[in-house]
Design a binder for these strands. Sequence first.
DNA 1: GCCAACGTTGGC
DNA 2: GCCAACGTTGGC
Length: 244
Amino acid sequence: MASKRTTRASTRATKSSKDDITPSDDHHDDDDDDNNRSEAVEVKKPVRGKRTAPTSDGSEKKAKAEPPSRPLYSHWLMKSEPESRIENGIDVKFGIEDLKALPGQTGCWDGVRNYQARNFMKDMREGHQAFFYHSNCKEPGIAGVMEVVKEAYVDHTQFDKKDVHFDGSSKPENPKWSMVDVQYRRTLRRFIPLAELKKHHLQHSAKGGALKNMALFTRARLSVQPLTSEEFDFVLDLENKESI
DNA sequence: GCCAACGTTGGC
DNA sequence: GCCAACGTTGGC
């Protein structure tokens, strides 16, 4: 499934309201994720094969588990497909213009079905900025900026058999998947193509620079990924420059 | 449309 | 817990 392969925001999102409190008792769904949570740390390179000790949780023998030092990142990049593609009879298209067109210019980022991506969404906090990335299209790249306006809560589409992202293995008593609400902020003064970002990344890898470790290149398939503020600022500044 | 790079699943 | 088979992502 997967429409845009991993993400998709749906229209009804905006219902906003605080009505749903979301069982946020934090523990609710972490139990199953198992893999990859080590990610959050950033400091070191992506250990891929062996998951290092979870940095913040288990290892400490300390008495009470310290509250996971969650907010490690405050900038993100989220991918979605801006071009029509039919999956299970449903068009999964959802580009930045589609977000902008929703009521309140706000939508829920549902459909993420990858634990690592989900865990990053759980780390998101209100007010965090995220790039809207266009994937699987003619010209992939960063189209604009949005803001997290509602923190992680249960993604209802996992229980909807008609939804492209239905997950029969997830039970309402213990939901696997979460989503956040994001609100359109602005479209960049110029679209920043993946190819351009890649040039900077290669350059920075060789001689140092902000994009040296950008997740877009070091973890290519992750649909929700963190950016350091240096990465975020560097990319934003590109809109004021000529493309290279 | 191809296919590389990964993530997931399930047998053993 | 290993790992082969399979499925998905997403650039090209």
